[in-house]
Amino acid sequence: MLAVRPVPLAQGVPMTQALVDGCVLSANYALIALGITLIFSIMNLLNFAHGQMLMIGGFMVYYVYGVFHLPFALGLLAAALVLGLIGAGFERFLFRRVLRVATREENSMLLAVGTALLLENVALFLFGEKQRGVPETVSGVVQFAGAFLPYQRLEVFLVALVLILGLLYFVQYTRPGRAMRALAQDRDAARLMGVNVDRTAMMGFAIGAGLAGLAGGLLVTVQGVNAGIGTDISIKAFIMIMIGGAGVVGGAILGAVVLGFAESIGYAYLPGSLTYLLIFLALILFLVIRPRGIMGHPWG
């Protein structure tokens, strides 16, 4: 029998590769987590359909850019608009009433799960079961300090960064953004101060859903899309906001950075199956010590 030499840990993966991968993953994850945390902060609602919304955004770009060969930017815009409208519709016709009349939190949670199943099945019906992908918007790979970085991933990283900074500016410095923060801090006080609570909540839901659409549209260039990816993405988004602190924009970004680097460094230097085992173990221990996450307090 052939003696097989055990594979040494690290296997020569340069640290620069792990760091570059960590940066790209963190930006991708932050874009995913921001939408879900925005909705949670404004409506105190965990949007279980976030992954499914991201999936539909991916399909929008697939059709606009991949099938009809229109500009990629137009696909992103379509994804953001369609998902924004779906989000606004969900808030106006489903969640607003349930949140108003329900006496238990489970009702809105069950409704959120229902919307996730609805979107997934509609997508399966409309788009089929197949994995879809689009051509790269930019091809080639740059190599530096032993690390490989495809231009496509660099583009996704940069666009995600711009979108994250844009959202932070919006919630921090614009009037609607301030209204959303006020709503997150105290709904009644915000109403007394003249904030149109219904309109602001609808806008928040629409922006959160639109962000999911943008994230899905952006990531379809590197990950592809299929009707079944939603639940796994929602679970990752929940992990990130649990780490960072639910309902805190900065917390979502921090959670994304922690998960992104844990994943990239773990996969580079640990046996593959240990990476997520350790991530979940660390998450459980962390939540026992600090159940509200790293930045677990509302905005402001």
């Binding site: 594979v7 020569g12 590769q17 792990a18 796994d232 773990g266």
Partner: peptide
């Protein structure tokens, strides 16, 4: 060169795990 490397079924970015395999 590698007999036990795995990725989570929910993985969307395979660069980190593939980097290790390719370096073997």
């Amino acid at each position: 060169t590698s007999s036990s490397e795995t990725y989570e079924p929910s993985t969307t970015d395979f660069f980190p795990v593939m980097a290790k395999i390719v370096h073997g």
